[in-house]
């Protein structure tokens, strides 16, 4: 056999794919990856909020109750710092801000989880669910959502602190307001940087899944995991 014959043998493989996806194994790997993603998101994002929001609401309620009782029973305080309609409004807005963060978050997660809980019956559906999970993660970290979160959190913390100050005898706690605002601005700036990196990683994973789906449609090759 001459080298040209070997060359001809070699060239026969150019006409057909050398490798193929092993669907069942890939499906399981993708499912496990999606499960890890869901668990991580719950632990790092939802659970802290589910814990913080009730604690915040209890705190607001406690301060409101203390203020209310003091206004009623401690005459000097009632005379110097009577609880006005503004104080009621401040408590209501602080509680409302906390609820406005956590309630939509809870409802949205519940709706999303209904589509994610079960094992997908096919590779195509698993890919679709994986992409939906990543879209959900990116949606939670979108700029308007993060701005809204930090805005509402700032309102809740500032009003809560303001009322705590009044409860302790400071009619106007501007120092606390500026300190809180500065802290929240710094926290949100740090948060945006972390989120940007996170979203880039999620985008890469999403592209990989989309490419796999396109490859599946074309009956082509599997892409590497990122």
């Amino acid at each position: 056999m001459e080298f040209e014959d070997l060359q001809a043998i070699w060239d026969t493989q150019n006409d057909k794919p050398v490798f193929a996806m092993q669907d069942a194994r890939l499906l399981l790997a993708l499912y496990q990856q999606r499960e890890r993603s869901r668990r991580r998101l719950f632990k790092q994002y939802f659970m802290p909020m589910y814990i913080m929001a009730p604690i915040g609401l209890v705190g607001v309620g406690f301060v409101f109750f203390a203020f209310f009782m003091k206004s009623l029973y401690i005459k000097k305080l009632a005379r110097d710092f009577p609880m006005s309609a503004w104080d009621y409004a401040a408590f209501a807005v602080a509680a409302g801000a906390l609820l406005a963060i956590v309630v939509p978050m809870y409802l949205e997660r519940k709706k999303h989880e209904r589509t994610q809980e079960i094992f997908a019956p096919s590779l195509r559906e698993e890919l679709d669910r994986g992409i939906a999970q990543l879209d959900f993660e990116m949606g939670l970290h979108s700029t308007p959502r993060v701005e809204r979160f930090y805005g509402l959190m700032t309102i809740a913390v500032v009003l809560f602190g303001w009322e705590v100050g009044r409860l302790n005898g400071n009619s106007t706690s501007w120092g606390f307001v500026w300190m809180t605002m500065s802290l929240m601005i710094f926290t949100s700036w740090a948060g945006f940087i972390t989120i940007k990196e996170f979203v880039e990683r999620v985008m890469q994973r999403k592209h990989a899944l989309e490419s796999m789906r396109a490859a599946l449609d074309e009956d082509a090759v599997v892409l590497p995991r990122k």
Partner: peptide
């Protein structure tokens, strides 16, 4: 098992 295998290793 790996996620991808040779489609038909013994084909040719």
């Amino acid at each position: 098992e790996p996620a991808f295998l040779q489609a038909s290793p013994a084909a040719d």
